[in-house]
Every structure is written in structure tokens, then in C-alpha cells.
Nucleic acid binder design. Sequence first.
DNA 1: ACCTTTCATCGATGTTCATCGATCATAGAT
DNA 2: ATCTATGATCGATGAACATCGATGAAAGGT
Lengths: 108, 108
Amino acid sequence: MRTPLHPPIEDVGLAGVLSALGDPVRLRIVRVLADGEEHLRPDFDVPVGQSTLSHHMKTLRDAGVVLSRPEGTRCFVSLRPELEQRFPGLVAAVLRNLEGATGPAADH
Amino acid sequence: MRTPLHPPIEDVGLAGVLSALGDPVRLRIVRVLADGEEHLRPDFDVPVGQSTLSHHMKTLRDAGVVLSRPEGTRCFVSLRPELEQRFPGLVAAVLRNLEGATGPAADH
DNA sequence: ACCTTTCATCGATGTTCATCGATCATAGAT
DNA sequence: ATCTATGATCGATGAACATCGATGAAAGGT
């Protein structure tokens, strides 16, 4: 667990956030995170391998969506709180529209 | 002006919409469209060539964000109204956070 | 008939991205 | 010191994407 580098919040751009959220796997991650709590990897049951999950985590982290807090060998992940001040209502709006709909074929 | 094919609204997915919006050029397009009016190509002053603009339009159209209405040789573009029922508050939230910030380097 | 405008499409190119398996680094336990 | 668990990183591969210039199609004007 080396570098939990989070970009400064002023470097976080809207396009980057939306792009990071524009993926079914990452939306599922965010859905789990929606309760505001910290979560560990096993909580995200996404249909990808471990290394791919790691990649998606990095994508969310680099985009400023997610916060990683390594502790020992594990890594607690949570929604980045400053995002709300940066883009008020944005994450909330996404979360509200997230129920059961992460993809075009997910609403039946 | 051949095929103004819009996907049925029930096929429009959240990930697709967010992904389509996750691009600086397309965000600029959406910003112009934010007034609810129809617009023509010259209204979008984006730093890309004509064919690339066309491509971005198709991306937005395929994602269900935008509506194309060909008329004669021109093509009127507007925000797709059904998106509001589909994902209430989503576009509004993006639009509210759009002022002057389409990218990480756009806030100085 | 011809030219012009407006937009879509095609073909090509270079970049980014999702994915995987394998390896490496770290921390904790034995 | 060794083993184990967790997650990051590396290398490779195929897919998707942004971009461009050139060409094509449709409608209007001369």
C-alpha cells in the first residue's frame, strides 16, 4: 500500500468526475459508498478481477471522487467529502438516480 | 443529413449519460444548450474540427442527452427533454456546476 | 445544371482504457 | 525469519475514442 495520492480538491474538474462516474463498475462502487461509511474491497462485489478493481479505485481516486485510507494491510475507501462543496448537489443527484440503474440493461 | 436516430428513452442508461458528459468539449456543448433553446453548429464554439464536432454530437445523441432535428440543410440541437423524467435533477445538477468549470484548468 | 452550405460518413492514426495474470511491497501473525 | 493476506504495480492485449482531412448526401440559391 504505497501511495494514496489524492489530488487537491481545486484540481478536481467536473469533466473528470463525470467521466469517472460514467462506468458501470465504478457506479456500483459508488453505490456501495453512498451510505457515507468507509468500506473495504470485499464490500464491492464487482464482476472484475482484483487488479482491475484496483485500477478502477485509482481512477475514482484520481478523479477526486473517492478517498483511500490505508490502514495496515487493508484500505478503507469512502466518498470524498469535499466533493460536495466543490460541486454541490452533483453526487447527490447521481446517487438519487442510481437505484437499480447502473446500465442501459439494468432497469427491468 | 441522413439519420437522426435517437435511442428510446428507456434504453438510456446513467453510466452512458455520465460518460457522455465527461468530456470538456461535450460539456461546452451542453452549456450552450442549457438555455433550453435549439441551437445550430455555429453556436458551439469548440476547438475541434467540423467532423469531430459531428462525432461529439453523435456521442451525445446516442447517449440520450441531446436531440437533433434536421431542417433543410441545417440541424437544430437541443437538450433531450425526457432526460428529466428519466433521471430527475441530474442534468440540472450538472448544469448548476458548469459555470466556468469544464475542466481542471478552467477555474482561474 | 451548377455552386454553396451544412452536416454525416469514411478511412487512418494515435491515445486512452478495461481487462487479465503475474509480480512486488507492506503489514501482521506464527 | 517465514508465511499469509491485501492491495498496488507491471506488461500485454484488444477495444473504444478523439482527432483529422477527404468525401458524400441533401437542400437551397443562382
